[in-house]
């Protein structure tokens, strides 16, 4: 079996002396959606940051398309085709929507207008508001800007840290639909989600983390069907 497109394998590490991750493994195939769920404090966001190189690993590897990128800085990973949308502070509030997108494409020297059009097609509301400061938008629109900014690098992998935090259920469904659309274009998606049920529904692969380690790993549908997962993590 060939290796997944992006894999963080057997990752161990944390911010200070104590490790938060204990041999945690996350992977995503090309064009698929992988979702990380788990209780509060399970190390979901930490695991994402580890994959993106924002955390020093004491053990384990991160490989992108077979290449070991464990030692690369986050900026270098951006250049390699990874994009990351943090949970908070994920837009430039004082800049217009369009400038946010331009900044997303900062590393690109070619014509970015095509990509920008794609983002506007994906999120039509952003086109209407493109000259407004992003800080004036609603919560859901801000998340769209954040995702749009990340897409501007034309990434191969898009990593989202709780993209639906603090938005209404309707906006959440809408966002999930857009994320599926993004995955259909061949971009791999790795995301952390608090709304485990809805997220697993769209997931090709699901990871249930507990205390920094993998507890269950399966397809989204299989996890949804697993009675133990349902009881412990999906509220029955």
């Amino acid at each position: 079996m060939s290796e997944p497109f992006l894999i963080g394998e057997d990752m161990t590490g944390g911010y200070g002396a104590a490790d938060i991750l204990h041999g945690c493994t996350l992977a995503v195939e090309k064009g698929q959606i992988a979702v990380i769920v788990g209780p509060n404090g399970a190390g979901k966001s930490t695991a994402m940051k580890a994959v993106f190189g924002m955390l020093r690993l004491r053990g384990g590897h991160v490989r992108l398309a077979g290449e070991d990128i464990t030692a690369l800085t986050p900026q270098a990973r951006v250049a390699k085709g990874m994009a990351f949308v943090p949970q908070t502070h994920n837009i430039f509030t004082s800049m217009t929507v369009e400038e946010n997108l331009e900044m997303g494409a900062f590393l690109r020297r070619d014509d970015i207008r095509g990509t920008m059009e794609q983002v506007y097609t994906l999120f039509p509301i952003l086109k209407d508001k493109r000259h407004q400061p992003a800080g004036e938008l609603s919560g859901g629109q801000r998340q769209q800007v954040a995702v749009g900014r990340a897409l501007m690098t034309q990434p191969k992998v898009l990593m989202l840290d709780e993209p639906t935090a603090g938005v209404s259920p309707i906006v959440m469904d809408e966002l999930f639909d857009r994320i599926i659309e993004v995955a259909r274009t061949g971009i791999s998606i790795l995301m952390v989600e608090q709304n485990a049920r809805q997220a697993l529904m769209i997931a090709d692969k699901g990871y249930v983390l507990v205390q920094g380690a993998n507890r269950f790993t399966d397809t989204g549908a299989a996890l949804m069907a697993d009675p133990e997962v349902r009881r412990s993590f999906l509220g029955g």
Partner: peptide, 17 residues
């Protein structure tokens, strides 16, 4: 613009390369 972005949100500016 990159200066304004950096001033606005340093971490995100780094993430944008």
């Amino acid at each position: 613009k990159s200066m304004r972005a950096f001033s606005d949100n340093e971490d995100l500016a780094l993430l944008s390369g």
